[in-house]
């Protein structure tokens, strides 16, 4: 599949979410809103950034060295839309909803333009902070005595809390397994051999 086709598909996905009943359907429960719709938009953003990478690299070397600035910005964008207040408001206010869609796509683009240049320690810190955040949010949503969003039921919230914990667990396993049981030295050698053959 060509890059162009992938981008068109991502664009189709964004349009489907923002301008068709699909978005409304995804937003009808908190779990699908937060754990399906928002990540899909981020993925679309990552895809949109693919052709931008070579063009923007000289600028990025100046303003986004090591991906630090971008990763900070992306973290704050995600944090902002994790505020129950704005997630809730986005459901009734089309302006806020557009800001949310735009922020998520932008987050994906920033991530894609920052991650490759990020140092391995930076990546590890981001990953750990990310999965820790899932555990924190999951716990908070499970113990919240009242509804955090006026548009969602308390049971929705509890399901999202469980979802957060599950995603946190899945990320932990996915990220920990290779560093525990993989073989980075062998992979490095294979990559080098492949490069030399190429």
């Amino acid at each position: 599949m060509t890059l162009r086709a992938v981008i068109i598909m991502a664009l189709g996905m964004v349009v489907a979410i923002t301008a068709t009943p699909l978005g409304h359907w995804l937003e009808s429960t908190m779990v699908s809103h937060v754990l399906v719709e928002l990540p899909l938009l981020v993925v679309a953003g990552i895809i949109f950034a693919l052709p931008l990478k070579p063009v923007s690299q000289p600028l990025l070397n100046w303003v986004n060295r090591g991906g630090i600035c971008g990763l900070i910005t992306a973290s704050f964008l995600l944090a902002f839309w994790m505020l129950p207040r704005w997630l809730d408001t986005s459901l009734g206010d089309p302006w806020v909803a557009s800001a949310k869609y735009g922020s998520m796509v932008l987050t994906g683009m920033i991530l894609a333009l920052s991650w490759p240049s990020a140092h391995v320690i930076t990546r590890a810190v981001v990953k750990i902070e990310f999965l820790t955040m899932f555990f924190r949010l999951g716990w908070l949503y499970l113990i919240s005595p009242e509804r955090l969003c006026n548009n969602y039921l308390l049971t929705d919230q509890i399901w999202l809390g469980r979802g957060f914990l599950l995603v946190g667990l899945a990320l932990t396993i996915t990220w920990a397994y290779p560093i525990l049981f993989g073989n980075a030295v062998l992979e490095q050698q294979l990559t080098e051999r492949k490069l030399s053959i190429d």
């Binding site: 910005t73 973290s75 704050f76 944090a79 505020l83 207040r85 809730d88 408001t89 955090l148």
Partner: peptide, 20 residues
């Protein structure tokens, strides 16, 4: 900017939910 945005978005930490 991020800290300011979060502060603005919560009315200085006073309103985390749409209800508050």
């Amino acid at each position: 900017v991020g800290v300011v945005a979060l502060a603005w978005g919560t009315d200085g930490g006073q309103a985390w939910t749409a209800e508050s």
